[in-house]
Simulated scan of single mutants.
Amino acid sequence: MPSIAVTTAERPPAPTTALIDRVSVAVLVDGAPAAPVVRELPDGVKALDVSAPEGAAVEIRLATPLQDAVGYWYPDAGWQRSLPPDWAGRMNAGLVHGCAIGCLYETSGQTLLTFAAEDATVDTHLVFGVSEQRKLFTVHVELTAGREPFTVLFAGRSPSPAAALRPLRRRLVGAAKLPPLALPEVGRTPAYSTWYAFGQEVTADGVALEAGRAAALGCGLLILDDGWQRGGRERGYAWAGDWQVDTGKFPDLAGHVRDVQGLGMAYMAWIAPLLLGPDSPE
């Protein structure tokens, strides 16, 4: 079996190019150095375009001196804001997991590296963290080349991560060619979610009883959370993917919804269409 690099320092060297601020970039296609195309965009944003034959292994390496770095934000960071070592920082990105985005910042909040993949649906694997041997913060973006070039957007130094990410967000929305979703009026009203009272043990009668109480308290929306679907008594979601009504809990779901709506409440049901488990018969 081929050896797997534990740290970014163990990867074969590749020629680097200055990209933005003190950030350098190296691009490899099937292990060989490749020349990316860098474009200047409005708002101080730069675009890095990587073209490769479809199916080729692409690796984009980013690096910047540690300087006064204290934190690194990325979509899966949760409450973790410290600097991981490069043998620990890992993230999968794509349609299910979220976009390949990252922001390194220093004590004052000033950013040192801010990037975002323009196409949020491409499956990518990110390896990132502090290279103790090289005294750098590194990010390696790995993917399989598709038919179109893969583009990564970069923002220059900004006073805060929010300020740096703002122009990238505008670019991502524009690239998706989707207008922002309008907020329905019911989205501004108090809501009742069944999860906090029932967990997965929801039933039509139990939800209807709670809906009456919630409506009397001024709630305008009922959210039927996890558990309404067949298989919805099992955590782990190995069964997920069919999204058929559990008729033992909801013998007449449509009728139940009409009854709740008759109380003056809007009705919303939780569903995770991209969640597909290995035990799904479909």
Rank of each mutant, 00 (worst) to 15 (best):
S108P: 03
L62D: 02
V25W: 03
K177V: 10
T138E: 14
E118G: 00
N92T: 13
L183P: 03
F137H: 08
Y192T: 10
A164K: 06
W228V: 09
E118Q: 13
Q67T: 14
V245A: 08
F154G: 01
H140T: 11
D259Y: 09
L126H: 07
A69W: 10
A182V: 14
L165K: 09
A162R: 09
D252K: 00
A175Q: 06
W270T: 13
W270S: 12
A69Q: 02
Q133H: 11
R11M: 12
A175P: 10
L221Y: 04
M268Q: 15
H97I: 10
Y74I: 10
V23C: 03
G31M: 03
V38H: 01
P53I: 00
Y237G: 11
A145S: 07
V25D: 00
Q133F: 08
P161A: 09
A211N: 01
G212F: 05
L183R: 15
F115H: 05
C103F: 08
E234V: 14
A120M: 07
P149H: 02
A240Q: 10
T16Q: 09
S24D: 15
P65S: 02
V45C: 03
V202Q: 00
V127K: 10
A204F: 04
R61D: 11
D123A: 08
T17I: 14
V152A: 02
L222Q: 00
K249C: 13
D68F: 06
G78E: 08
A216M: 04
E201I: 10
G55R: 01
V23S: 00
A214F: 04
A47Y: 01
A269E: 07
G232C: 01
A215F: 03
I20H: 12
P85T: 15
C103E: 09
S160N: 13
L276N: 10
F137Y: 08
P84V: 01
G44D: 01
T189I: 11
F115S: 06
A182E: 13
P251V: 05
A216K: 05
D30G: 09
V260A: 01
F154Q: 00
R147K: 13
L104G: 02
Q110C: 14
A35R: 14
E148A: 14
E282H: 14
L83M: 03
W79S: 15
P180A: 10
L48C: 03
E234S: 11
L95D: 10
W73H: 09
